[in-house]
Amino acid sequence: MSSRTVFAAAHVVADPFADSTPDGPAALDWDATLAFRRHLWAQGLGVAEAMDTAQRGMGLDWNGAAELIRRSAAEAKAVGGLLACGAGTDDLTGAEHPLTAVRAAYERQLQTVEESGAQAILMASRALAAAARGPEDYEEVYGHLLRQAARPVILHWLGPMFDPALEGYWGSADLDAATETFLRVIAAHPGKVDGVKVSLLDAGREVALRRRLPEGVRCYTGDDFHYPELIEGDEEGFSHALLGVFDPLAPLAADAVRRLDTEDRTAFRAALDPTVPLARHLFRAPTRYYKTGVVLLAWLAGHQDHFTMVGGLQSARSLPHLARAYELADAVGLFPDPGLAASRMRSLLALQGVPQ
């Protein structure tokens, strides 16, 4: 793809035979997890690794994330795949930490990502949100990290609909004020920010921010509700993409974005617009549980052999929600083998006592 840089934030595949508990370390099926990344790269997409789609902070701790980053980086080198990985502060435990500890945690994780050879995504931090007393604390911490980053990073602004602990990020619950702080951080460190990932589910706000970014700084949409219009763009620009919904939509999304390489905007929208009802269903409130639908669709599509998730998160969505996800995915032709998908969905329904 030449017209847009597109990352799919990838899920992880749990080991269903591990004797684990919801509050214990994640046990992953590494073969299946890495095979799914090869699937994404084969579509021409980049992989955004160890992000919230991988249940970061919802079952996958930093030790598991670090191993995931190292293994995915090795796979990316082997196949020539584009890879960016999340660096945060989730190795901190306990309720609150001073800013010095938050900064040190970021530094440790940034080092892990950079030593793997991947590009870093500076993730929004629950610990920083708890410790910061105002915008100046965000500017100090991010400024310190950007000055020492070995290569340009992606800044991630994740809204509270994805993680309630991030309410008031960038020092204010007023999004206009938060935006000004965000832009000051970027402007103060030219050449150190490759782009920004915006996950606020507000298309108008993203467009307004996109138009104010310094030249050369990309906007990667993280809006799983409005992605077709934001990626298509307008006369003043467009968004690249870093999306959790492109995990299940990978083949359809990749084909659609290739239409933009030939400037066929009509074909792009015709290919991608029909997927929006599915995306909106997967990401409906409480939005943070969208991962359950993503893993369901991976199982139905044949990318893994079971519907088991780290931390038992397969139980986070209702049976009617999952059934509707199947219907919407089938309607857009998402499943390589519709018969397999139907058979697996019937088995899930039967397990829950639904008459066949």
Rank of each mutant, 00 (worst) to 15 (best):
A104G: 11
A118I: 01
G302V: 06
R147Y: 10
L351Y: 11
F268M: 06
E236I: 14
S20Y: 04
A76K: 01
L183T: 05
A165C: 10
H156F: 13
A178M: 02
A27S: 12
P135G: 09
G44R: 04
T100W: 09
W170N: 07
Q314K: 14
L242P: 12
K197Q: 05
F7N: 05
T21V: 10
H189D: 02
Q111R: 14
Q55V: 08
W62L: 11
R265A: 14
E136L: 10
L201K: 06
G159P: 00
G143S: 11
R151F: 08
T5Q: 14
P355N: 04
E180F: 07
A84Y: 06
G353W: 02
G204C: 12
A208Y: 06
F246E: 02
D273K: 13
E67I: 07
A165T: 11
A325M: 12
R70Q: 04
A279M: 08
S172W: 01
D234Q: 09
D261E: 08
R288H: 05
E232L: 15
G311Q: 09
D174A: 08
E96Q: 11
L28W: 02
R211P: 12
L334P: 01
R284G: 08
K291P: 11
R269V: 10
A42L: 07
F246Q: 03
A270V: 09
A203D: 04
G222N: 01
A26F: 03
F335T: 07
G94K: 11
D91Y: 10
A32P: 01
R344W: 03
E232H: 15
P248C: 12
D234V: 05
T262Q: 11
G143F: 02
Y142P: 05
L92R: 01
L252I: 15
V79R: 06
G88T: 03
F246A: 09
D330C: 14
S172Q: 07
D90Y: 15
E236K: 15
A35G: 08
L313H: 14
D261W: 03
A165E: 04
A132S: 05
E96R: 11
E229V: 15
S2C: 09
P98S: 15
N63E: 12
D330Y: 07
P190C: 02
C85H: 06
R133G: 15
E206W: 00
A76T: 08
Q304R: 13
G59L: 10
R56W: 10
D194H: 13
K291T: 14
D61F: 08
G222Q: 02
D330F: 09
A173I: 09
A173H: 05
F225N: 14
D163L: 00
T262F: 08
A84T: 08
V198F: 01
R265H: 13
A165F: 02
A131N: 01
P98E: 14
E67S: 11
M345S: 05
W30N: 02
A26Y: 03
G195K: 02
D90S: 13
F335Q: 05
H11Q: 14
F283Y: 07
A35C: 06
K197T: 01
R280H: 04
A131C: 04
V47P: 00
E263T: 07
A149N: 04
A120R: 05
V257C: 14
I121A: 01
P160Y: 00
G57D: 01
L34G: 00
D337V: 08
A84V: 08
R344K: 08
D330Q: 15
S343W: 10
R269G: 06
E229S: 15
G233W: 02
V217T: 03
I154K: 01
V47G: 06
E167H: 12
D174C: 05
A132M: 01
H156E: 11
